[in-house]
């Protein structure tokens, strides 16, 4: 396939890490797409490859040990996997921006917030220092930081976690990117601040008409803001669906397990004790994956065929994909 009608289309992406113990297939044949203006949730446990997928899109995989060994990432007629570094730099930050999990450490401690945001305008818009600074202050205002003039000349350590994440969002949205990749942007924040940041992101997404790829392990976050969800497990996409159908009728046993492990108020088990269900077992190490389905060792519906070969991703219609033998071969 060549050009894509989607804003971003990932096809059969493979990102491997070479370690002393062997090759870790962190992202193994992952395909999905992102459309203009939508919020796509990418969910999975730690180590399922969701962050590596995001870093592959940005071409921020540390190489060595990592390497994109196969697949394509189509964006505006370009395959990002083969783009020249200089061309990739023009896209990074300007057209595809990213925010990270740790607002405490993602800002450079020796520069002011204003300087760090202004750098975006200087770099991608060729503005002078003063003009860039003015735009930076305006961005801080847009992310609802009070007294933006004063805050702009402060250093990261003078700001709270929530404020820093706002500053990170201001930096990411500075150049009005078409895609915003948010890698667990609320994980490190207090619950009340989490909600504020999510609200802000949703609002800014409307204002800036940005497509958002929201990476998280928190299904609550997904329910709140995503229209579509990609569920990943051990480097593979196991299920893909619109948010509502996914929550109402999860197909893949892993997705079901994930949904059951969300605590709900007022729910009690038969014994009358409040008990949270968990998915038994551990995520397999990427170096010694089971030969068949990667979820098989933890799956309550495990069958003989699951141990023999890996199920394909099947199309169940209306944008619903699932990788499981329960739905045919």
């Amino acid at each position: 396939m060549t050009e894509s009608r989607h804003l971003l289309e990932i096809q059969h992406l493979k990102t491997y890490f070479t370690t002393f113990e062997g090759v870790a297939r962190a992202v193994d044949d992952v395909s999905f797409h992102l459309d203009r203006g939508e919020v796509l949730g990418v969910v999975g446990e730690s180590g399922c490859g969701k962050s590596v997928t995001a870093q592959s899109i940005m071409r921020l995989i540390p190489e060595p040990p990592g390497k994109i060994v196969g697949g394509h990432i189509w964006f505006d007629g370009m395959d990002l996997t083969t783009l020249q570094p200089s061309a990739m730099r023009r896209i990074r930050g300007d057209r595809i921006a990213m925010i990270f999990q740790e607002p405490m450490t993602s800002l450079n401690p020796v520069y002011t917030i204003g300087d760090q945001i202004a750098e975006m305008f200087q770099l991608h818009r060729g503005m002078g220092r003063r003009e860039a600074w003015r735009h930076a202050v305006a961005m801080l205002e847009k992310v609802q930081i009070p007294a933006p003039h004063k805050r702009a000349s402060e250093y990261p350590h003078q700001l709270s976690g929530g404020m820093r994440q706002r500053a990170m969002i201001a930096m990411a949205l500075a150049c009005d990117p078409e895609i915003l990749i948010a890698d667990e942007p609320t994980t490190a924040l207090d619950v009340t601040v989490q909600a504020q940041i999510l609200d802000l992101m949703l609002q800014l997404k409307e204002d800036f008409q940005t497509a958002v790829m929201m990476i998280t392990h928190d299904l609550g976050v997904i329910a709140e803001i995503a229209q579509r969800v990609v569920v990943m497990y051990a480097g593979k996409v196991v299920e893909q669906a619109a948010t509502l159908p996914l929550f109402e009728d999860p197909k893949h046993p892993y997705t079901r397990g994930l949904l059951r492990s969300i605590p709900k108020l007022g729910e009690r088990s038969k014994k009358g004790r409040l008990r949270l269900e968990e998915i038994p077992g551990m995520v397999p190490g990427l170096l010694d994956l089971p030969p068949g389905c990667r979820f098989e060792p933890r799956c309550p519906h495990s069958m003989a065929v699951c141990r023999e070969r890996e199920p394909e991703l099947q199309d169940l219609g209306s944008g619903r994909l699932v990788r499981c033998f329960l739905y045919g071969t």
């Binding site: 940005m58 921020l60 990074r92 930050g93 990213m98 990270f100 993602s106 450079n108 750098e119 770099l123």
Partner: peptide
């Protein structure tokens, strides 16, 4: 992390290394 941020901004290697790391 802030070096990752610097790369994600689209800065050229010289700027990331000298301005953001070496400083």
């Amino acid at each position: 992390e802030y070096i990752k941020t610097a790369w994600a901004k689209g800065l050229p290697p010289g700027k990331v290394i000298v301005k953001h790391a070496l400083r």
